[in-house]
Amino acid sequence: MTTTAGDRDGAATASSDRLVPTPRTILGPYFTLGMHVRPTLQPAGHQVPITVSGRVLNALGEPVMMTMVETSQPEGWTRYFTGLDGAYVITTVKPQATPGRAPHLLLLVMSGNFMIRPAVTCLYFPDEDNDTDELLQQLSPEQRATMLARRTDIGYEFDIHLAGDSETTFLGWPGLLDDEE
């Protein structure tokens, strides 16, 4: 068994004993007080710094403020919060290709006022060979297009459409579905 001695709840021993999860709640409007911004991942060694910016938009194309945007990759993670203009800008390092996967950033978005769970997508780079990526191969051209950043003078641009006709392709995975059981 994996738990420590002296547990008050005790450990679940059968699926019927599984603990009731703590409900998820919204971040609320004041989350920037406690959840720290870290917009920059410092490059190490030969890592190439890149800037990724964009806006979080609703179905009407309006900016979504007070939204947490995070990126994650094996080298580390960043976190940013959108203001009135819905914009985010982070500096990270260019991720490496791995077997079966083109270089990509995992990207998480969670609005402070109306989302109790984050939406997750992948950001791909237009100047990389994405054809062999095992995730992209499972998607339609329309879905793939929403996950491709644009090259700009200062780096990469990637708008996140939370809803609407241009809705970004958001991902789930088996572990996420635990509470459906």
Binding site: A59, V64, Q138, G164, E167, T169, F170, G172, W173, P174
Partner: peptide, 13 residues
């Protein structure tokens, strides 16, 4: 207007 409407694309962990 504010939250995703399309089902998530379920991918292997």
């Amino acid at each position: 207007i504010w939250t995703p409407r399309k089902p998530l694309v379920i991918v292997p962990s």
